[in-house]
């Protein structure tokens, strides 16, 4: 795999009042890899990826994406540069149909620009269907999103990310609430996606992490505790201590 750096943070911090949710993280992500971020509850994982996506502004530090400093860019501009973010808490359009939910995302990618005229409604819907087929929701196109089962809403969320065809897909605990067979399907989906884009995955399910991740980053109390291959992380004393709650 080519050693091209896709994303890099320097001294990234985010404080909520006195609480240091993210506390000076230097982080590098290579193009094409699948990276898992793990860490105990409240470690700052969601906050960290929110800083990457621009959903929350940092207190300090910089974010560089694809060779460009994006720290000052608002979230929607970062999405256009290719950072897609799926929420930890399901965040969809409840009264729209499944197809329409993903169509909004597809429309974002196919929006008119100087080089291209706006896509037709048919093209938008085709793109949305393709993304839904990838997660296996293509038999529920016309169902109202708000009444889907929780697991299906998670998949819908992922499909919205896919429809953006991002350079970097950030998934925040995507398998939470999925059944075993849905998880198996999900792993296949991510493997396919990873052929064309980089994936940053927050995950508590170690089976998912081990099946997917090229490398693992461990966060604890807002700080970067360890980073390495899955095998290295499994054998890391500090990581074991953090997970077992003992001092390192």
């Amino acid at each position: 795999m080519a050693e091209v750096i896709l994303l890099k943070t320097r001294g990234l911090k985010r404080h909520f009042g006195g609480l240091k949710a993210v506390d000076g993280v230097d982080f590098t992500l290579r193009k094409g890899e699948i990276r898992a971020i793990i860490g105990p509850n409240g470690a700052g994982k969601s906050t960290f990826v929110s800083l990457l996506s621009g959903r929350i502004p940092p207190s300090e530090g910089t974010v560089e994406f694809d060779g460009q400093d994006v720290t000052a860019l608002p979230a929607h501009r970062r999405v256009r540069l290719g950072i897609a973010y799926t929420f930890q808490i399901t965040n969809i359009y409840p009264s729209m149909s499944v197809l329409e939910n993903v169509a909004v995302a597809a429309q974002s990618r196919l929006r008119p620009s100087f080089l291209r005229k706006g896509a037709s409604e048919t093209e938008i819907e085709d793109a949305a269907r393709a993304a839904l087929a990838a997660v296996g929701l293509d038999d529920r196109l016309d169902e109202v999103a708000g009444v889907l089962a929780y697991g299906h809403q998670r998949l819908l969320e992922v499909a919205m990310g896919l429809a953006l065809e991002p350079k970097l897909l950030i998934l925040d605990e995507p398998t939470q609430g999925l059944s075993d067979s849905e998880i198996a399907n999900f792993i296949e989906v991510v493997k396919r996606v990873a052929q064309s884009s980089t994936v940053l995955l927050i995950e508590h399910n170690m089976h998912v992490v081990m099946s997917l991740a090229d490398r693992i980053t461990v966060l604890e109390r807002g700080r970067l505790l360890a980073e390495g291959s899955p095998a290295e992380i499994m054998n890391d004393k500090a990581v074991q201590a953090a997970y077992l709650g003992e001092p390192a």
Partner: peptide, 24 residues
């Protein structure tokens, strides 16, 4: 059409729409 869908998207969930790359 697509523009109307965007309007409804803003109504339904403005944060989600922002995170799909739209300047709401």
């Amino acid at each position: 059409g697509p523009l109307g869908r965007l309007f409804v998207a803003v109504r339904e969930n403005i944060n989600r729409t922002e995170m799909l790359g739209f300047d709401t």
